[in-house]
Design a protein around this nucleic acid. Structure first.
Lengths: 237, 237
DNA sequence: TAGTGGTCTAGACCACGGT
DNA sequence: CCGTGGTCTAGACCACTAG
């Protein structure tokens, strides 16, 4: 089962982008250039680029070229409105718990049941509080298997982003997500952290992110105060 | 600005599917067949089919052909868990308000501000209550411009589905959606309908569906009791 | 005007599914 | 075995962007 030519080219270009060989805004080699570099035809080159396009690594511009763009972080994901708009402006993220190794919590305490394979390693846990304009709006609890990821315990996150860190330092991409939404009454802990009264309605998003690394899923609870900042999501065909 | 050949073929096939010329499970003409029917090459035929694939009208099977499949109803949309699994089993849908023509409500009462053009016609409104196993779980309020859609006031919905009705009777497809989530305390009306205590946390999903008909968007509020049935959403790369 | 991506032709060979 | 979709070649012309 030979790998197809276009997926070889696709992998080459993708890993270059991930390694930072191109900055955001840079242009990839033109289609014609790819053709003669790799001795392929434009059909094949375009197919490879199409894959990158679908994955959100590039953006094509007629007459100009294929531009590397900011990797979309949320794949059909829900994001706090204002987090995207006000990016880098009024957003604060603070660690309530820096990444630590712990035994896995009971399955009932997790957003989704982990797979057996994941339970063989210990669990890495971290917790963050995200705020807009000084007001806390989201508490985020993350669980995942420590296998091969213990380096995460030391360093800082790339640009403050967990997903960017996975991509740039470990070459792991998010490949999908499964979510579950519930409206809950705030318990004591969440009400204190999100500064709402106990019993106030909050939104809990349970997420299971699947990744390109087999045996690695990220399990997260997101507790959101949606009073001022609702959670938003766009979908275009 | 001539239309591309592949998008012509794409339109032809799409309208045939929508008109019901093929049943779900039927196969479209093979790629080679399309080639000689329309005097095109396989590149062009495949491009047309690729569009149908992206839109979810067909499913390709290596060695067999392109099969017409059940049109996916929710585009990146959130659906009640159990609505998909238990489809046709324990689901009940009842009209609280059959489609009627009304003046547009105040903008503040709508999920998203309508466009000016839409306000020129009256508004069609309908409201449904959806339940699982006899328990109400979701109240759904829908608003949209009546322009060209007054026939909706008479007939039944195709298979009980509003979107299927739009597609089969009006050839209108949903092309995207914008959503906003909030956790709210149930007001009197919703608490009675969803059979929860007043003040209980409920999830409100505000949606704006864009469609293939210019000047038509569907605005909806979904009030969900997530106690037993959370709202779920999968996303695969 | 030169270079880019978008569309399209006219073939070819392969892998898969069913007879 | 034959017909299907998946991949790929080697070209061509067009529309868009920018110097």
């Amino acid at each position: 089962m030979a790998e197809t030519r276009y997926s070889q080219i696709h992998k080459i270009l993708k890993s270059r982008i991930q390694r930072g060989a191109y900055d955001v805004g840079d242009f990839l080699p033109s289609e014609h250039e790819l053709c003669h570099t790799y001795s392929i035809t434009r059909t094949t080159a375009r197919k490879a680029l199409d894959e990158l396009l679908k994955e959100g690594f590039i953006e094509k511009q007629h007459g100009k070229g294929s531009m590397v763009k900011e990797r979309r972080q949320s794949l059909g994901l829900l994001t706090v409105k204002g987090f995207s708009e006000a990016v880098g402006e009024n957003i604060q993220t603070t660690f309530l718990q820096k990444p630590i190794i712990t035994p896995w919590p009971a399955v009932a305490e997790l957003p989704f049941p982990p797979e057996e394979r994941e339970l063989k390693s210990d669990c890495i846990y971290f917790e963050r509080l995200r705020g807009v304009s000084g007001e806390p709006v989201m508490r985020e609890c993350n669980y995942f298997s420590a296998e091969g990821l213990t380096k995460l315990l030391d360093g800082e996150f790339v640009e403050g982003s967990f997903f960017k860190t996975l991509s740039k330092n470990f070459f792991i991409e998010i490949t999908g997500s499964e979510q579950e939404l519930r409206a809950l009454k705030a318990d004591k802990q969440s009400s204190e952290l999100l500064k709402v009264s106990e019993g106030a309605p909050i939104l809990r998003i349970s997420v299971k992110f699947s990744t390109s690394k087999t045996g690695l899923n990220i399990y997260s609870y997101l507790y959101c105060n949606t009073e001022k900042y609702p959670i938003g999501n766009d979908y275009k065909h």
